[in-house]
């Protein structure tokens, strides 16, 4: 009970902090919309071809963009954590009896919210342009990708506490970002690629999320890919949250 209250209080603090910086809310929404407006049209000629079965290219493209949004919403956590290490906020909170898990989850919940709200907006915007929504599948999809956001948020926070410097964090995160997103097939399905690329993708946890997201978006709710996606993302989120909690708990020099 205390733990839930603390988590809610800390999430509320984070949400207020975000709402006070509307520029970030605006940026979070504009990036996916730009992909839809400026990149998706390039895919038009591919409709019906390999990798794009059936009707609209958006049916394949939108789930990938959602996965990219989920990834991006989480990865900012480390920057905030480093700022708070420097201003002493984390040290102050660590001297209170607040649960260390609640400290982690407060940020994770805000990041999940900051993924879900723009994601719904993207779905609503994409529908009149030929995206075929299967709302039950999309609801489950948002749940799956929320796990991806949680994993990224907790992982990024843990990295921030461990590395303590913006420069190092930026190097690690940008170093991870390209291979993780490219090898997940967020922009184009990896089934278009050669066998070695598809094989390599199987070591990338995010690949399973994107595969499952495409199935869910097409209305397939029960499939091996969906089960795999949840298993991999669930494990990644748990592992990252454990790591982050451990980082908060551990003595920091």
């Amino acid at each position: 009970m205390t733990f839930l209250l603390q988590t809610a209080l800390l999430a509320r603090r984070r949400i207020l902090e975000t709402l006070r910086q509307p520029i970030w809310v605006f940026m979070g929404m504009s990036v996916p919309l730009m992909y839809l407006a400026l990149f998706a049209p390039l895919l038009k000629p591919l409709a019906g071809g390999p990798g794009f079965p059936g009707g609209s290219v958006l049916d394949v493209f939108v789930p990938g963009i959602l996965a990219l949004m989920a990834f991006g919403s989480g990865m900012g956590a480390g920057w905030i954590v480093i700022g708070e290490l420097e201003s002493g906020v984390i040290e102050r909170l660590r001297v209170t009896p607040a649960s260390r898990l609640a400290l982690v989850l407060g940020t994770v919940l805000r990041d999940v919210l900051m993924f879900v709200v723009p994601a719904v907006l993207v779905l609503v915007v994409a529908t009149p342009f030929g995206f075929h929504p299967h709302w039950a599948g999309l609801a489950i999809l948002l749940g799956l990708l929320a796990l991806l956001t949680a994993a990224c948020s907790a992982g990024s926070a843990a990295l921030g506490i461990t590395l303590k410097q913006i420069g190092s964090l930026a190097a690690v995160v940008t170093g991870l970002q390209l291979p993780l997103t490219l090898l997940a097939g967020v922009l184009l399905p990896l089934s278009l690629g050669p066998g070695w690329l598809q094989g390599l993708a199987h070591v990338n946890p995010m690949y399973y999320a994107v595969e499952a997201a495409r199935e869910l978006a097409s209305g397939t709710l029960a499939s091996a890919a969906v089960a795999e996606g949840f298993a991999v993302m669930g494990a990644a989120a748990l592992l990252a949250i454990w790591w982050s909690t451990h980082a908060y708990r551990r003595a920091m020099a």
């Binding site: 207020l16 902090e17 201003s87 002493g88 906020v89 909170l93």
Partner: peptide, 25 residues
């Protein structure tokens, strides 16, 4: 505890800082 770097949450108001702190206790 009042640390060397202070630890006020600069994105929140003073009152919000105080209320959150009290509730965490």
């Amino acid at each position: 505890y009042v640390g060397q770097r202070g630890g006020a949450d600069i994105e929140a108001t003073g009152r919000e800082n105080l209320v959150l702190q009290g509730r965490l206790y």
